[in-house]
């Protein structure tokens, strides 16, 4: 049997909103470690990896490892029915082909349950080794979202360059070009407003903006985003989920022919 209970049910709603447009179907793996998922978009250009550690839940029981194949659009439909303050319980019995979501209002005066049919999904799990990155940028997630949105009104791709000067986001399109430079800024009152750039090597990579804008849908999950770049690796855009884990997006670069 698998059962988890999360008092902050809105967190699961936010997770689904962040990934449902990128991935159609995914296997959610439940183990003693926690609730995790790895899935690629249909073109194999982007990958999302989610981890919610068991310690982060108010209740977590997993008698044996299970993998639940779920259509994300359908799971998002169900989670939309949960109130923002609702307590969410997710349950699956061994050997059944469905998962149950239960929503309880904080005052316990409304209790809903939804049963979602599971599906068989051929999961293509990529092995992603730990890597040393040439540059790691930490910045306010809302700022990153704003930059991606602004640049996509000019062009389709973004060049992210990290130098001693800072991190530069550039694009070009039919109407012209755009460059946005963010400098390291640690002298802010609130740590969530800081921009911190760790650079071992200068790096410059090109990415499709439509994927970056899709990743930015995770902005409500974390005040800061971490962007890890290496010249010979996909970029990692990570949103930490407070006390629980993370949602990481991997995006393969574009190269000049």
């Amino acid at each position: 049997m698998f059962e988890l209970r999360l008092e902050q049910g809105s967190l699961l709603k936010k997770v689904m909103e962040a990934i449902k447009d990128l991935v159609n179907d995914a296997n959610f793996d439940c183990s003693a470690t926690g609730f995790s998922m790895q899935a690629m978009d249909s073109s194999h250009v982007a990958l999302v990896a989610l981890l919610l550690r068991s310690e982060g839940f108010e209740h977590y029981r997993c008698d044996r490892n299970i993998s639940m194949g779920i259509n994300l659009a359908n799971m998002a439909k169900i989670l939309k029915c949960a109130g923002n303050d609702d307590i969410v319980t997710v349950k699956a019995d061994d050997g059944t082909d469905s998962v149950t979501f239960m929503f309880e209002s904080p005052t316990q005066d409304k209790i809903s349950d939804f049963e979602l049919k599971l599906m068989d999904i051929d999961s293509e799990h990529l092995g992603i080794p730990e890597a040393e990155y040439d540059a790691i940028v930490r910045m306010p997630s809302a700022e990153f979202a704003r930059i991606c949105k602004d640049l996509s009104s000019i062009g389709d791709t973004v060049v992210i360059s990290v130098t001693k000067e800072g991190v530069k986001f550039s694009t070009r399109g039919d109407i012209g070009t755009a460059n946005i430079v963010c400098r390291q800024n640690t002298s802010v009152d609130k740590p969530e407003e800081a921009t911190i750039i760790e650079m071992k090597e200068m790096v410059s990579l090109t990415f499709a903006l439509r994927y970056m804008n899709s990743f930015a849908k995770a902005t409500p999950l974390a005040s800061q985003v971490t962007i890890s770049l290496s010249s010979d690796l996909p970029v990692v855009v990570e949103y930490k989920i407070a006390e629980m884990g993370y949602i990481r997006f991997y995006l393969a670069p574009k190269i000049e022919e």
Partner: peptide
């Protein structure tokens, strides 16, 4: 012209 790489160019399947 830019070419979009796929993730398999960097990572292998488990």
């Amino acid at each position: 012209h830019e070419t979009q790489l796929r993730l398999e160019a960097f990572y292998s399947f488990n």
